[in-house]
Write a protein that binds this DNA or RNA. Sequence first.
DNA 1: CATACTGTACTATGTGGATAGTACACTAGC
DNA 2: GCTAGTGTACTATCCACATAGTACAGTATG
Lengths: 133, 133
Amino acid sequence: MLLRIRPESDEPIYEQIIHQIVFQVAAQVIDNGTLLPSIRELAKELLVNPNTVARAYQELERQGILAARRGMGMGLTEEAGKRCRELRAQRIRERIGQVVKEALHSGLEPDVLKAWIEDELSRHSARTRKEKR
Amino acid sequence: MLLRIRPESDEPIYEQIIHQIVFQVAAQVIDNGTLLPSIRELAKELLVNPNTVARAYQELERQGILAARRGMGMGLTEEAGKRCRELRAQRIRERIGQVVKEALHSGLEPDVLKAWIEDELSRHSARTRKEKR
DNA sequence: CATACTGTACTATGTGGATAGTACACTAGC
DNA sequence: GCTAGTGTACTATCCACATAGTACAGTATG
């Protein structure tokens, strides 16, 4: 499982883990029923404390995306795909709304904002077409 | 000066103060050369600790937007307008880029993303046309 | 000059995120 | 049954943000 953690980010590490797993499940990079790496294993891979991974896993379990299997690890639920797509939509729409609201509220002309959005859209979709990074 | 502080936000209070002042200067709601409310005064108005306001003012001074006038308060620089418009563009473009990158990287179809953006754009520009909230 | 305001600089406390380390109960696999 | 791995639950420490309170140097204003 490929996760990119930025310790210096404003977003807490345990939330980065949560949302990146949610996004990968939504993108079907990880399929329903898959067994995720154990807390200690993922912690070692991400150079992060096991407690931090445990907190992320607990939150995902609370939302019905993960289910604990003692002695084996944490597995994805059957509803994981559906729920993750819902969460992805919720997160993205909320963040778009924040930026747009903030930008217009700051007196920025809507045309300029739309131009910037188009710019970023083409920039990142160009990268997506070729490879991931 | 109208600032809306959300103590429960992920964004630290002192950063909220900074970026809201920057945005209002960029929008020319506050003109160059204006004298801002004193640290203690603004702190009382925002129901926030004076130290928090002081930290925001110090950062704005460090960026050449504010200048301290002992006994009077903090006043906007002559370059304040220009610098604040630069900072506004930087902040907005960066946040747009993050959301777009995240969304496309999560396997979301570009068409869906564009639809969501159009939705939020029309929603908030409708509000802007009438009043602020 | 005297007062009241200004910004600035401290110390101390509380909270949440993150780390470190330990311990316990459960289970797959040999 | 044993071992090694699993999730879970603690305690302790560190750091940043925010708060509370005090003190000091400079200045506008009377």
